[in-house]
Each structure stands twice: as structure tokens, then as C-alpha cells.
Design a protein around this nucleic acid. Structure first.
Length: 991
RNA sequence: GGGCGACUAGCUCAGUGGUUAGAGCGCUCCCCUCACACGGGAGAGGUCCAAGGUUCAAGUCCUUGGUCGCCCACCA
């Protein structure tokens, strides 16, 4: 065992060594954990694009603490890691790289481009994994998954096909959010709104065949080129006479009708609205109601198209300026005002999003939301903190259909083929995948159109939103759709820990998909893609929009083909895209039975952790340079310190502002732990000379039998520290059970630094050097056992340091790691109320004596005599029994114990209700200072006594408050009165 | 427009109706005592944003207001 322990804790070498060892040994394989109840948790898969940031580290620290805690408590524990292909984000990164070579992805072509992305993934996709390993995440890396790997690709196809057959996925032409930079549709959630000062223009639209105008207001003049109507409120008296007439659309010279629609707000602007059904969600709806044509005036990259007449080819914002200028010239611009409004931008590239009509794939959300709502409402998924539960439920109530198709090349390609002859949509025959050049693609390629027999089938070019595959993560990673051992063992997962910022993107969608899909698995006997669902799925979708039985087996089903697509699709995308729900409440009542729901939730508990912010409270941002690199902090302060700092600040529901002094504090703590252990080993060397061996003092079987009785004066501290251990273990268990990481940290911190170091070690130091084996051996045994327990308590938060120190203690030959050791149990037989009380009193006495010394400015090295007085015989006995440590810790030469009055004139006195202490004045007596102190104290006590007396005099208090509260108050009052009298007497004697 | 959160010591934050509201850092004084100066000891420091209300009892629950922050939202 290495004995050269450096004075200051140097984490770097230790951490790197253990991180590598844990990984190489596959220490955290689920198979290495205990055989208790399963505890499973899926890592929120980081995007392959990035590197670990401090937010990941917070998340991983919290997950890791719980995972390690469960593992140490013997649970069959799995933390399943993996990465997300992050479609749009990754494509964005690789496109940027291409741009440096002056290339666009179109120049490469789809296949080449995909190769480039894979290549890039091979180079940089492993960064996060390496970082996680380095930071000590105790994942089962043998089960690592990637959303685009074959097995998960297959799960995605399977999920798509099922949902498609059920009519829950449909295709149609609707208003979507279009990013002209990324050139793809994006979901509502990927549009972020920024309040901006823009302009609103008032434009005159001449009434056809008249000199009058209708003035409309717009913030986007360029869209006017696609106007197909002007709308007014039907009851608006100003415009009644124009309804049914038409106006001449300026610049385009197109005659468009004036229509009446109650959507129009008479109070806003001029009360007349231009209607552009192809470029505005509301106008889209109005357009449908009034059968207006939809004129798309833009290209996919944000330029005006040929429908824009002379503006064709002009970039959208350039067109805006030109149109405003042209209107001005024509005298048709009535005015322009500054106007605050929310501009939607692409979450990824920050381009202004263009609402646009396009043919996309959508998922009906209402039918999926109903069961999700039920499980959350009924607590089958527990959401912490509580307010996030409300937010989640509100979002589910207002859910709208999800645009799941992306015009990207990096992702899961939609498993639908289009017939060139009749436009029929033909789904993949099954969910099989084949590996081509190392990567998966759908293998169930249909060869013949079932409708027209045509053989010219081409696969849909769109890919699925990244979040579609993420939504399957908890079960796809465990082998779904196959009925695997892992799925049976670890699904539903026990817990999901995620940031609240992806609650809607991910967490909720997992709940919906999990409830809908996870129950139907393919048994091992069935071949890939040919299984069928065995269990009754419940009736949820029997009464779905198609009004027919849609829940059927996996591959045996004749595809429903166009169900839910085209004209028969539910109304609207944006705006009205709210799936006019015919899943009624009655249908909700026919949801699957509780136990089935309970066994198909993706996770039983959901904990939304806080976000890390800068010291100023702003969101961290790489572009602003306010992001913090956790690996750099790790280099500087140590991983354990950083982990501890993050955990100690992770109070549920509040964001974390990162400050350096907290990290310094955590580093000091790590150092403290290191040095406490160092103390033991350094001193052990000294006694080894006397024939002691580490094994006899600290072998596992020796530690197991602690505490050992220590004869004579030293017994108390030993009884007390084990009593503390029991209580601390219970508190930590309780805190971790409730995600109160900060509380767990604080409890351990106070135990280790305060109880273990400041009191216990100081108390028993002389015993360890005692030549009498009868004393030294049990003392050593106890302190090693206590240290060992403390390390195990600390391990979930500070894995490296504790692993290192644990290995310095003798461990069973088979033991690999503290991570597989047991978490300390709150052992009832360790609880010792008598020791707790006695110790508390002794501590109080010692602190009081030190206080007197400090106030008297006595030389710290000089030992002085003191007097102790108490009427309590028990207390006096406690003093006598512990006189030796007491004298030492209070730096006294002697303590005279009596029950006599202590004269304050000859020394400085401190009193509690139970005892008095006095240290005789030496040369200098600062009487005025003592009198001032007494007066202040008396004043405080008087106020306190008064308030207590008042409350006790109140009948309503004594009659209504619980008895123990009243009794406690009475008891305290008596104590205060005694203290007060003592102080008053002393003051009188001094005056 | 809706919703959520925060406001407690100089700073950053805990605080789960019930004795005298806590921690870390910082500050003051003392100590380089043989594990640790990333240390030890002793202190100072708070009308818990404001005003009402509920309650025997409010930092804690309710209402209103203020300041700051965040999320959601199709008012041109």
C-alpha cells in the first residue's frame, strides 16, 4: 500500500487512472451490479455535434449520484448511455465545414454527403463519450447506443409504420414553419420567438372601380404579392359597404375580393387585413374558409419566385425594401410605425422563419396526448418539481400536431415509397433494415404498387425529425421492438433526469410514444419485422379518427395506405392544425387499464433539473463566450470538486449561477477529505513501529464489527460518531430519494468536516498513540471503520477521491471498487441518544470556554484553569468521564467541577440554564466590555422571554396548538428565565 | 396576451407552518499547534421586497402591488 501521500490533494493523475480503469474493466455493466430490484435510467443522449458543457455535467453528476447510490444499495442497476444523431444540428455543422471548401451539400449529392457526415461522426462523435468517461459517469458502455445505428433505425421504421397504419401519421399540404437557411420545415418547438422592434406599414389598396382605398396594415409587405383577399369584420360599420366588392392589389394589379371574417380584430390597426393564405397561418385558415387561392410567392431559400412578378429572384428582405419604395412612389403607402412584435427564428441557425405551405408529414398528437395526460395526472409518472407537472399538463392540453418530416439528408429516411404512376404511397413491407457500407437503411422495400401495380416506386426523400427517434429512446435502446431480456428487466425505466428546457421536445414525446408503442413487442421466436402484437392494446384507437379498428399486428397488416393523408387529413397544420379531436372524453375513458399503462410508461419518475447560468444569471452561450468548459474546470480544481459543487447547488427548481468561490470551497472539501485520510495513514506508520498492522485495525471483517468499545474516558466520541453515521445515512438516503442533492451534500459535508474531522479525530487523537493496546486497538478500528463508511457516503458525489482512498484500506480480494461496495445503512443499533446529548453538551462547554479565552485574549498556547458548576449530577459525571479530551480541546490546565456559585468578580463567566463556566481573570480585566456584553445578552433574553410569556398567556394558543409545541415552549421559557436570572445576578455583582 | 419562477446576512444561495432563520464565500480578531493555511479557533452581520389577509402560530399559506428573470402564444 502506497504510503507517500502528498500533502495537498492532486486529483489529476488519480482521476485519469480510475476513469480508465473503470472503463477498461467494464465495471458499470449492469451485470456487475447487485441482484436487487432493477434501477434503470437512460442517458439523455447528447448530440454528436458537441462536447460536454457544464449543463451536461450538472445533469450527469445528478444522474451519476443516483445511479451510484442505487448500485451501492444492491439494486440491479443500469445507466444506459448513447448519442443522438441530431439531424439538423449535425447537418448544419458538416455543411459549415463544406462551406470552408466552398461546397454545398448539393454539390456532393445525398450519398456523398451522408458519407461525409459519417466520416465526421467517426472523428468527433467520440469526444463526448471520452469526456463522460473522464468525468466519471458510471454508464454501462457495453450497452451504448446511437440513434442511427441499425437496431434503432429499425425501431424508428417500426414505430413509423405502426403509427402510419393507425392513421396517426399522415401526409399533407399545410402551413409549416420553414427555415430558408436550413431549407427544411421545422416544428413549432424549433421556432423561437424574439420580441423585436419592427415596423408596421399601412398600405392603400384601391377599391376596384372607385377612388376609395382600403388601408391594410402589415409587418411583412413582401407577402402582399401573394394576397388573395382583404378581410374585414362582418359587423364593422366602416367597411360594410365594401364587403363583396374587390380591391386592386397594388404592384400586382390583381383584383382580389373583400371578404368578411370574424377573425379580424376591429380595434387593431385599420381593421382591414390583407390575406395571404400561402404565407401566414391565420390567413391560411381564413383562406380555407373562404376558398381563396394560395399563391406561394417565395422560393425555398427565401427569395421571391416567379409568382412575385417583377420581384422574382429578389431576396425576401430586399424585396420588402423595394416594395415599400415602390409603394411610396405610387403614393400607396399611407404610413409606417414602429411596432413591437415577436419574430420567429430558427432555433438552429437563427434565420427568420417563413410560414409557408408545403407538403409534409405530421403526427396526430391529441390521441397520443390523452394517455400521457392520464399517467401524469394519476401519478403513474411522478413529475418533480411539482410546477413542471402543471406546465407539462397544460402543454398536453393545448397540443397540436407535430410536423415530423425534415428536408434534410442526415437522419432516418421516411419508410414510404411513392408510385410514379398513380402517386399511391406505399409503406415499407416491414421494419427490417439492411446494412449498406456499414450503415442501416430500410430493407422492406416495396416492389409493386398495390393500387395500380406500377413498379416505379421511389422512397420519400424526407427524413424524420431527430426527436422522433429520441422519443423511442427508453425502449429502442433496450431492444424494442423485440421482446428482449433487457426490455423485460429494465423497462419501464425507473427515472428520467432531464433539463426542463427539453420537456416538450423530448420528455413528453417519450411518454406518448412509450405508452403507445412499448407494449407491443415481437417475441424472440418471430423473425425480425414479422412478429405481431400479442397483447390487447386497449381500445384507445378503436374509436380513432377513422372510426375503425386500427390496432393490428405489426407486419401482417395490410397498410391503410392513404389513411390520414391528403384531403382526408385532419384540418390544418399551423393555426388550425389541431386535429379536430374526435378522440372524445368517452374514448379516453376507454384507455388501457391502469396496470398496462403503468407498465408501458417510459419512466416512472421524471426529474427536471435546473440549468446552469453564468454568474450574472444569463444563459450560457458559446457564441457569447460565456460558456464554461467543464473539462477546463476539472483540470483546475478536480472533477470531484466540480461534481460536488454542482450537486451542492442543485436544489430542485432553481437555476444555478456558476461562481468560482463555490468551486474553491468544494476543492477545499476534497482536500480536507484527502488530509483526514492522510492523517490516519501517517499516524498508522508511527504505531506500526509498535507492532500494529493495518490488517488487524482495518480489515473488512474487522470494520464490519465496529464500533468497538473503548475503555475509560475515550468511549463517548466513538459511540457518538457511529450514532451520527446512522443519522447521516438516513438523511442522505432521504435527500437522494427526493432529488435533494444539495441537502445530501450539505449533510455529508457537515458530517465529514464538522463531526468527523473537527470533533472525532481531534477527540481520539491521543488514543491512537496510546501505548496501551486495549485503548489504541479499538480506537483505531473505529476510526478506520468510520472513515470507510464516510468514504462510501461520499462516493456518489465524489467518486474518484473516494475510490482512491478506499483502495488504501484493506479490501476483500474480490472487491474491485468502492462503487460496488455497500452504501452505509442507517443502522438502528448505532443510534445512541445518550451519546448524542452528552457530546452536544461537551461541545457547548468547549465552545464556551474557547469563547471566554478569545474574548479575554488569552495566549492560545497558555493553558489555564477553569471552573465548572452545575446542579446536575449527571452532567458533572459526564464532565468527569470526559475530562481529558475536554481539557485538551479547551486548552485548560484543569477544570474544577462543583455545584457552587461562581463569583463573576474574579473571572469571566458564561452560563446556560444547565451550567456555569468561569475562567479567572489574569492581569487585565476588561470590566466595561463584560458589562456591555451582559447587558446586550440580557436585553435579548428579555425580549425573548416576554414574547414567550405572551404566547403562553394566550388561551387560544395553549388550547389549540399541539401539546408538544406548548410543552416545548414552556420548557424553553424556563431555561431562558434561568439564564436571564444568572446574567442579571452577575451584572449586579459586577456593577 | 397567458403561465412560471425569484426577491432571506456584504456576495451566492438553503430553509418540508411550530424554540433564538441557516450554509459556503467574504469580513473582524487570534493562531504557520507535529493531517490539512485548500488549515484551526472565536466573532460580527438579517424590520426574510411591500401592504393586506388566513392561522393559536407565517420567511413558509392566500390576495394585491413592486422589481428582475424565464417559458408559452397565429393579433395583421
Amino acid at each position: 500500500m502506497p504510503r507517500e501521500i502528498p500533502k495537498a490533494y492532486e486529483p489529476q493523475e488519480i482521476e485519469e487512472r480510475w476513469a480508465k480503469s473503470w472503463f477498461d474493466e467494464k465495471l458499470f455493466r449492469a451485470e456487475n451490479s447487485g441482484d436487487g430490484a432493477p434501477f434503470s435510467i437512460a442517458l439523455p443522449p447528447p448530440n454528436i455535434t458537441g462536447s460536454i458543457h457544464i449543463g451536461h455535467m450538472l445533469e450527469h453528476t445528478q444522474i451519476d449520484m443516483l445511479v451510484r447510490w442505487h448500485r451501492m444499495r444492491g439494486h440491479h442497476t443500469l445507466w444506459l448511455p448513447g448519442m443522438d444523431h441530431a439531424g439538423i444540428a449535425t447537418q448544419f455543422v458538416v455543411e459549415r465545414q463544406l462551406a470552408k471548401e466552398k461546397l454545398r451539400r448539393q454539390d456532393l449529392g445525398r450519398e456523398e454527403f451522408e458519407k461525409r457526415v459519417w466520416q465526421w461522426k467517426a472523428e468527433s462523435g467520440g469526444v463526448i463519450k471520452d469526456q463522460m468517461i473522464r468525468l466519471g459517469a458510471s454508464c454501462d458502455w457495453t450497452r451504448e447506443r446511437f440513434t442511427l445505428e441499425p437496431a434503432l433505425y429499425r425501431a424508428v421504421i417500426e414505430a413509423f409504420l405502426r403509427l402510419y397504419r393507425e392513421g396517426l401519421i399522415y401526409r399533407g399540404r399545410y402551413m409549416v414553419n420553414w427555415c430558408p437557411r436550413c431549407q427544411t420545415a421545422i416544428s413549432d418547438l424549433e421556432v423561437v420567438h424574439h420580441e423585436r422592434a419592427g415596423e408596421i406599414w399601412n398600405i392603400r389598396y384601391p377599391i376596384a372601380g372607385s377612388k376609395e382605398f382600403l388601408v391594410v396594415a402589415t409587418t411583412r409587405p413582401e407577402t402582399m404579392l401573394g394576397d388573395t383577399a382583404v378581410a374585414v369584420h362582418p359587423d364593422d360599420e366602416r367597411y360594410q359597404r365594401f364587403i363583396g366588392k374587390s380591391v386592386m392589389l397594388p404592384l400586382m394589379n390583381r383584383e382580389i375580393p373583400v371578404i368578411a371574417d370574424t377573425y379580424v380584430d376591429r380595434e387593431f390597426g385599420t381593421g382591414a387585413v390583407k390575406i395571404t393564405p400561402a404565407h401566414d397561418p391565420n390567413d391560411f385558415e381564413i383562406g380555407k374558409r373562404h376558398n381563396l387561392p394560395q399563391i406561394d410567392v417565395m422560393t425555398s431559400d427565401g427569395h421571391m419566385n416567379e409568382a412575385a412578378g417583377k420581384y422574382a429572384g429578389v431576396e425576401r428582405f430586399a424585396a420588402r425594401s423595394r416594395i415599400v419604395a415602390d409603394l411610396t412612389e405610387l403614393g400607396l403607402l399611407e404610413g409606417v410605425k414602429e411596432h413591437m412584435h415577436a419574430v420567429g427564428v430558427c432555433d438552429r441557425c437563427k434565420s427568420i422563419v417563413e410560414p409557408r405551405i408545403s407538403t409534409q408529414w405530421f403526427m396526430k398528437m391529441k390521441p397520443l396526448a390523452a394517455p400521457a395526460e392520464k399517467v401524469v395526472r394519476e401519478g403513474l409518472i411522478e413529475v418533480v418539481p411539482e410546477n413542471q407537472r402543471t406546465i407539462l399538463l397544460q402543454w398536453l392540453e393545448n397540443i397540436r400536431d407535430w410536423c415530423i418530416s425534415r428536408q434534410l439528408w442526415w437522419g432516418h429516411r421516411i419508410p414510404i415509397w411513392h408510385c410514379a404512376d398513380c402517386n399511391e404511397m406505399v409503406p415499407a413491407t416491414d421494419s427490417r433494415v439492411e446494412i449498406v457500407e456499414g450503415h442501416a437503411r430500410a430493407a422492406g422495400v416495396p416492389t409493386k404498387c398495390p393500387k395500380c401495380g406500377g413498379e416505379k416506386l421511389t422512397q420519400d426523400t424526407d427524413v424524420l425529425d431527430t426527436w422522433f427517434s429520441s422519443a423511442l429512446w427508453p425502449f429502442s435502446t433496450l431492444g424494442w421492438p423485440d421482446d428482449t431480456e433487457d426490455l423485460r428487466t429494465f423497462y419501464p425505466t425507473s427515472l428520467l433526469i432531464s433539463g426542463y428546457d427539453i420537456l416538450f421536445f423530448w420528455d413528453v414525446r417519450m411518454i406518448m410514444m412509450g405508452l403507445h408503442l412499448s407494449r407491443d413487442r415481437i417475441t424472440a421466436s418471430a423473425s425480425m419485422g414479422e412478429g405481431s402484437s400479442q397483447r390487447n392494446q386497449g381500445e384507445a384507437f378503436r374509436q380513432g379518427s377513422q372510426g375503425e379498428s386500427v390496432r393490428q399486428g405489426t407486419a401482417s397488416v395490410v397498410p391503410k395506405g392513404v389513411a390520414g393523408s391528403g384531403a382526408s387529413a385532419p384540418e390544418g397544420a399551423l393555426g388550425g392544425r389541431s386535429f379536430s379531436s374526435d378522440i372524445s372524453l368517452a374514448a379516453r375513458g376507454a384507455l388501457a387499464p391502469e396496470d398496462t399503462l403503468a407498465s408501458s410508461v417510459p419512466f416512472r419518475r421524471l426529474y427536471l433539473h435546473s440549468l446552469v447560468r453564468t454568474a450574472e444569471g444569463a444563459k450560457m452561450s458559446k457564441t457569447k463566450g460565456t460558456g464554461v468548459d467543464p473539462l477546463q474546470l476539472t483540470q483546475q480544481y478536480g472533477t470531484d470538486a466540480l461534481r460536488y459543487m454542482l450537486a451542492s447547488m442543485a436544489a430542485p427548481g432553481t437555476d444555478i449561477a456558476l461562481t468560482e468561490d463555490r468551486i474553491l470551497g468544494a476543492r477545499a472539501f476534497a482536500n480536507k477529505i484527502w488530509n483526514a485520510a492522510r492523517f490516519l495513514f501517517v499516524n498508522l506508520e508511527k504505531v506500526e513501529a509498535n507492532g500494529f498492522t493495518l490488517d488487524e485495525l482495518a480489515a473488512p471483517e474487522i470494520r464490519a464489527k465496529a464500533p468497538y468499545p473503548v475503555p475509560g474516558e475515550g468511549a463517548l466520541a466513538h459511540r457518538w460518531i457511529f450514532s451520527r453515521l446512522a443519522s447521516v445515512a438516513a438523511q442522505v438516503n432521504d435527500a437522494l430519494e427526493n432529488f435533494r442533492f444539495h441537502e445530501a451534500c450539505q449533510t455529508i459535508y457537515q458530517f465529514f468536516w464538522g463531526d468527523f474531522c473537527d470533533w472525532y479525530i481531534e477527540w481520539v487523537k491521543p488514543q491512537l498513540a496510546n501505548p496501551n493496546r486495549e485503548i489504541a486497538v479499538p480506537a483505531w478500528r473505529n476510526i478506520f471503520a468510520a472513515l470507510d463508511a464516510a468514504l462510501r457516503l461520499l462516493h456518489p458525489a465524489m467518486p474518484f477521491l473516494t475510490e482512491e482512498l478506499w483502495h488504501k484500506l484493506p479490501q476483500p480480494a474480490a472487491a474491485h471498487s468502492i462503487a460496488l461496495d455497500k452504501f452505509p445503512e442507517p443502522r438502528a443499533e448505532w443510534t445512541d441518544v445518550g451519546a448524542d446529548d452528552a457530546m452536544a453538551t461537551l461541545q457547548e462547554i468547549i465552545v464556551s470556554l474557547r469563547n471566554i479565552r478569545a474574548e479575554m485574549k488569552l495566549d492560545p498556547k497558555k493553558k489555564v484553569a477553569a471552573d465548572f458548576s452545575s446542579r446536575g449530577l449527571t452532567l458533572r459525571n459526564v464532565i468527569q468521564e470526559n475530562l481529558d479530551p475536554l481539557l485538551r480541546l479547551a486548552s485548560l490546565s484543569e477544570l474544577r467541577v462543583s455545584k457552587d456559585h461562581l463569583d463573576p468578580k474574579s473571572g469571566a463567566v458564561r452560563s446556560t440554564a444547565a451550567f456555569d463556566l468561569r475562567i479567572a481573570y489574569g492581569d487585565a480585566v476588561d470590566k466595561p466590555a463584560e458589562i456591555a456584553r451582559l447587558k446586550k445578552e440580557i436585553d435579548r433574553l428579555e425580549k425573548d422571554i416576554e414574547s414567550k410569556q405572551k404566547r403562553l398567556a394566550d388561551d387560544s394558543f395553549t388550547s389549540k396548538a399541539p401539546g408538544h409545541v406548548v410543552d416545548a415552549l414552556r420548557a424553553t421559557l424556563v431555561e431562558r428565565q434561568i439564564e436571564h436570572r444568572k446574567l442579571q445576578d452577575r451584572l449586579n455583582e459586577l456593577l
